[in-house]
Simulated scan of single mutants.
Amino acid sequence: MAKLTVEDLQLEGKKVLMRVDFNVPIKDGVIGNDNRIVAALPTIKYVIEHGGRAILLSHLGRVKKEEDKPGLSMRPVAERLSNLLNKPVTFVPTTEGKQLEDAIAKLQNGQVLVMENTRYEDVEDGEYVKRESGNDPELGKYWASLGDVFVNDAFGTAHRAHASNVGISANMEQAAAGFLMEKEIKFIGGAVDNPAHPFVAILGGAKVSDKIGVIDNLLGKADKVIIGGGMTYTFYAAKGIKIGNSLVEEDKIDLAKEIIEKAGDKLVLPVDSVVAEKFSNDVESKVVENDIPDGYMALDIGPKSVELFKNVLQDAKTVVWNGPMGVFEMSNYAEGTLEIGKFLGTLSDATTIVGGGDSTAAVQQLGVADSLTHISTGGGASLEYLEGKTLPGIAAISEK
């Protein structure tokens, strides 16, 4: 069944509750990166252009004690949103009560209101009570009472059952997906459920344990699964290849052996590595094939691995990439990640989907983001979706 979307709703004159993902980096009241705010603009604009009164809810960071609140206020976010929309945005510094209710009552068609960080509700009288993140039924019911319809555009929290997504949905006659959520369902859900073949998954990052569910699920769906990043060396250890001082999860070596046996030639591992004696950008590095010398650690894939991966990818019709190929934050070990990102930008006949902070940063740094089909806004949500899990935030959206 297809999900209800914002385009299916009658918006004129309606109070439209919108769960957005404005969980942006803020330091000393200054927003470091506003990509998530920008990503929500199409849905917000659609609502207000169609006469809706937009009431935006989002969490920001983790609020575990009273002292966390001042640094995690949504006020700077509301100000940035106002600049991006080029129109006033009402900010209400609370999540419950008369001040919020009065402000909503004053909203006119086409106006926007941002309420305070939903996770302020997780701390009450100095205690960490997790009302929002614990999906308190009364809180979800209260927030639902503030609007006429509900639009969920926050894929980044879709893997969590919170009061501001699942709780509101449970108390609304109609819960619809925003444009951003709709894209995530279409592309990531489509890649998992009905990909065009050849389908190639690229999985990087430090730990096998973080990606085991994804690897297991995708081995049953993909034609090839490329492995990069630190978790490579747990697979190396499982194959009896020397890993020097490289990152390894000793307790996952047997699991890696099982994956190798199950995968057969579907699993593609690096054939060379960039290694150094220290986890540092300031030491000499070198490229070695297969065995990592004693005293060295692998910090990126090498040039032969890049070429191998490109050969696997060149005929792909669907590509999903999650996780870096090396220690991307250090320039000496970013080459593998950057080369893969650059190559994906050339695959004009493929559906290319990127998720995860470092891989997303890589394609943005390269300026190839616009040539890819979809850049996911969800880290944990993308991973769980790729695992084939049912995401509570998506399940709570009404069917058409």
Rank of each mutant, 00 (worst) to 15 (best):
T157H: 01
L180S: 02
F187L: 02
H159R: 01
P137M: 11
D122L: 03
G156C: 08
R160E: 01
E116T: 12
D122E: 07
E127N: 09
T157N: 04
F187S: 00
K183H: 12
Q111C: 07
A154M: 05
D148K: 13
A170T: 06
F150R: 00
V149N: 04
R131L: 11
E124T: 13
M172A: 14
D125K: 14
F179R: 11
H159K: 03
D153A: 09
M172T: 15
M115K: 02
E182Y: 03
G110K: 05
V129F: 05
K186Y: 08
L139C: 07
R131C: 08
T157A: 05
L107G: 10
Y128D: 07
F179S: 13
A176N: 02
S169K: 02
Y128C: 11
L107Q: 06
N109L: 08
V151T: 01
M181G: 01
V114D: 02
T157C: 07
R119H: 14
I185C: 06
L146G: 02
A154C: 06
G178D: 09
G167M: 08
V129C: 10
I185N: 05
H159L: 01
L139F: 03
G147W: 01
A170K: 15
E124N: 14
A161K: 10
K183W: 09
M172H: 14
E116A: 12
G110R: 01
E132P: 09
Q108R: 15
S133H: 04
E138Q: 08
N152P: 03
E173R: 14
G156V: 05
G190M: 04
